[in-house]
Nucleic acid binder design. Structure first.
Length: 572
RNA sequence: GCCCCCAUAGUUCAGUGGAUAGAACAGAGGAUUCCUAAUCCUCAGACGCGGGUUCGAUUCCCGCUGGGGGUGCCA
């Protein structure tokens, strides 16, 4: 592995701070906003000057003088404006860096080696079709999974399926009365969904249905073999469909443990909380009372772990799940990727875990709602449902129309495969490229767009890279020599990719990686317009250099897209 | 009531207390004897309002307005 240019410059800056007698552990190093200011800048002089009440410009001048001499790395270092220190790295250092990033691991440092992350995402409910609202958790979670693994973490992607609860009583009752076996055989989830909806719509003036449903739920949870078998059928049928969607999205899990897996542990959790004095009985229910000391606003609402009727709640299940994860994987960090509406729940959950003596840090990655134009939320409740598979199909159909128009020399099979990849990638990238915490407006034309800052743009650039590498034939890659400005810009972007992956993971924000890959692609497109790689009029050493640069670009794009769950194409 | 989130160009979105706030789409105009034009180049266009902290605020704090979400027995 090779430290990145910014790692090396940060060390350079911190060495300067030490020799100035002002040791620090943050070099405040960032890429410059404008190329005219160099490659990187440090704003450390501002911070140090503020702490010491000095003039920042004067301190920056002293700082500059105190920097070590490193002519191999630093081409120039200058003080600018009120106290910025701008660095330009040498052509040789940049060229060498590009040459070190040709493998799939990008030669990147792996600071996560030895650490384990459990990340909980997707978590659909059994007997309901996945809709567009499930997309965010699934693909943001998967992208975080990919980025952390890239950084060396052992990652356990855990799909916490909603396979337990009162909805099964309703399903069982409805199944007995209204099921259509042929419909179930043809489309299991569709039939289960129909039964469930009918249960909600039908008149039940005497509460007869409600009673039957409660009885069925109780029998199921008591282990009635017949109902258990029926429940298993519902779960299995749902999982078949979920797995098909995951395969299509390219999403993987290390563990698929539904809520039912924790059923046996729930009573013990509640008893222990009571015995330890952490929980109390209140209005017949069992609650953990938190205070403002547990976190802002947490003193208001208690955390419910058992209802007055004796049933456990999702919070109880979540506590049992934490116990299981700690015992099974001994993680260093546990993360949950859910929509922001569950923020309070997780803050409470984490606080209760801390009270139970659990030291492991938790992270709730809350993302914004997906809404439709006009402000409606896309949910079963509002009656506006966009089935995920239907959206994927439409995305692929739109991609296919473009493939047929642009790539008419390719075979039918190739075109179908390309359209599938491009369509699904476009939908995923559209989501991933936005800040998770922002609400998303789903609009068919925007969400499935194939032009502009979209996955197809990145995939196309990668395909061009592969194309020229195929054409290079026997010509071998060689040392990088940066001649054209577009080459330097591209090289710098490629060199920064490992830094960006680290930052994106640390911020739990895949969109930072999307932004960077888009920038790399823009740089590549400009390079492509200006610089020929192979040809009779291109000197051999220039071809060799550019083949290395193109290889590094292709690797950076392929690896970066791969972390986002998007497979790069060699042709399109 | 209380708590949380959001407000950037016509639209959809980026933006780490830092230098001239970036893209895309839509709009106007250009580029292809040559490695994939699903491309590139040019033009035009924005930080809700009022205070505060700071050398410096779209960013942090307070208030206001507008929108969304949550809030003891759903998840």
């Amino acid at each position: 592995m090779t430290p990145t240019l910014s790692d090396r410059l940060a060390a350079h800056v911190l060495a300067g701070a030490r020799s100035l007698g002002l040791p620090d552990d943050d070099a405040a190093l960032t890429p410059t906003a404008l190329a005219a200011h160099g490659d990187f800048q440090t704003n450390l002089a501002f911070r140090l000057a503020k702490a010491r009440g000095e003039n920042p410009r004067a301190l920056a001048e002293r700082f500059l003088a105190a920097l070590p001499n490193d002519p191999a790395l630093v081409a120039s270092a200058t003080v600018a404006g009120p106290g910025f220190i701008n660095f330009k790295v040498t052509e040789a250092a940049l060229a060498a860096d590009v040459g070190a990033r040709l493998g799939d691991d990008l030669g990147a440092p792996r600071p996560g080696v030895g650490k384990t992350l459990v990340i909980d995402f997707s978590s659909p409910n059994v007997a309901k079709r996945m809709h567009i609202g499930h997309l965010r958790s699934t693909i943001i979670g998967h992208a975080l999974d990919g980025m952390f693994r890239f950084l060396g973490w052992r990652v356990i992607a855990d799909n916490h399926i909603g396979d337990w609860g009162t909805q099964f009583g309703k399903l069982i009752v409805g199944w007995d009365r209204w099921r259509d076996d042929a419909a179930f055989a043809a489309d299991p989830i569709g039939e289960l969904q129909r039964i469930y909806q009918r249960f909600g719509e039908i008149e039940d003036p005497d509460g007869e249905l409600a009673t039957a449903s409660r009885v069925a739920t109780a029998r199921l949870q008591a282990g009635d073999p017949e109902l258990r078998a029926l429940w298993r059928r519902f779960v299995d049928a749902s999982m078949v469909e979920f797995d098909a969607v995951y395969a299509r999205l390219g999403v993987r899990f290390d563990a698929v443990l539904g809520e039912s897996a924790y059923e046996a542990a729930l009573a013990g959790i509640v008893e222990k909380l009571l015995a330890d004095g952490l929980a109390e009985v209140s209005d017949g229910a069992v609650v953990v009372r938190l205070t403002a000391d547990d976190g802002p606003g947490l003193g208001e609402a208690p955390f419910l772990v058992r209802k007055a009727d004796g049933a456990a709640l999702y919070g109880t299940t979540d506590l049992a799940t934490v116990d299981h994860r700690l015992a099974t994987w001994a993680p260093d960090l546990i993360a949950y990727v859910t929509d922001m509406r569950q923020q309070l729940h997780f803050r409470q959950l984490f606080a209760v875990c801390r009270r139970r003596g659990i030291q492991v840090p938790f992270q709730h990655v809350g993302f914004g709602l997906l809404r439709l134009p006009g402000g409606k939320t896309a949910s079963t409740k509002s009656g506006v449902v966009l089935n995920l598979v239907d959206v994927l199909d439409e995305a692929v159909a739109r991609a296919r129309a473009v493939v047929d128009q642009r790539s008419d020399t390719l075979s039918e099979d190739e075109r179908a495969a390309i359209a599938e990849t491009v369509g699904v990638a476009a939908l995923k990238y559209q989501d991933l490229s936005q800040n998770p915490q922002s609400d998303i407006v789903f609009d068919w034309d925007k969400s499935l767009a194939l032009d502009g800052n979209t996955a197809p743009y990145l995939l196309y650039a990668h395909a061009r890279c592969r194309s020229v590498l195929r054409r290079a034939g026997d010509a071998a890659p060689g040392p990088v020599v940066l001649v054209d400005p577009s080459e330097r810009e591209l090289a710098m972007s490629v060199a920064r990719t490992p830094d960006v992956i680290r930052q994106a993971a640390a911020a739990w924000r895949p969109n930072l990686l999307c932004d960077h890959l888009y920038g790399t692609t823009q740089a590549f497109s400009r390079f492509w317009e200006r610089c020929r790689v192979v040809g009779d009029d291109v000197p051999a050493d220039v071809t060799a250099s550019r083949l290395t640069l193109v290889t590094a670009t292709a690797t950076s794009l392929r690896t970066g897209l791969g972390l986002l769950g998007i497979r790069a194409l060699d042709r399109m």
